[in-house]
């Protein structure tokens, strides 16, 4: 069996899936994409850091009409993960304003996108509501 492959290179799979980010060693600004220099302070040294897997939903939209081939409806959210903003779909809940609420606590969740012709499974991610205890 081949190892599963993440939907994007900043999703790290394994026992505790999480997102990783480049972090400027000087000013701590974080970037999911590679940078030649920090957009904030122009420093050119970066570390790879783990992004918190829980956060608060700071904004969202429920997309009902999208480009051909994109399944709708889906919820796009902006999640504050302990100071790092992440854009992801809100999953594992109904895509309506009764179930998706500003300020709600969410956590990273992964799901299978299926296997390719070689039997390699791709793994996607989203954020799901943390059930109130």
């Amino acid at each position: 069996m081949s190892e599963p492959i993440p939907i994007v290179n900043y999703l790290v799979l394994g026992e505790a899936p999480h997102l990783v980010s480049y972090e400027c060693t000087n000013c701590k600004a974080r970037f999911f994409g590679r940078r030649n220099a920090c957009a904030s302070c122009f420093g050119s040294e970066f570390n790879q850091v783990e992004v918190a897997t829980t956060g608060e939903l700071r904004s969202f939209t429920i997309v009902a009409f999208a480009a051909p081939g994109v399944e709708v409806p889906f919820v796009s959210g902006i999640i504050d993960c302990d100071g790092t903003s992440v854009n992801a779909n809100i999953i594992n809940t109904k895509p309506d304003p009764e179930h998706v609420v500003l300020g709600m606590k969410v956590q990273l969740a992964t799901y299978s996108m299926g296997a390719d012709a070689d039997g390699v499974e791709a793994i996607g991610f989203g954020f799901e509501p943390i059930e109130a205890a």
Partner: peptide
């Protein structure tokens, strides 16, 4: 740049203007 195995619009948030400005 992100090593995406699929186009991400709709899978990692939305790229379309009505959704971006809704957010």
């Amino acid at each position: 740049r992100f090593g995406a195995v699929v186009p991400v619009d709709g899978r990692i948030g939305t790229a379309t203007m009505p959704g971006v400005f809704a957010q």
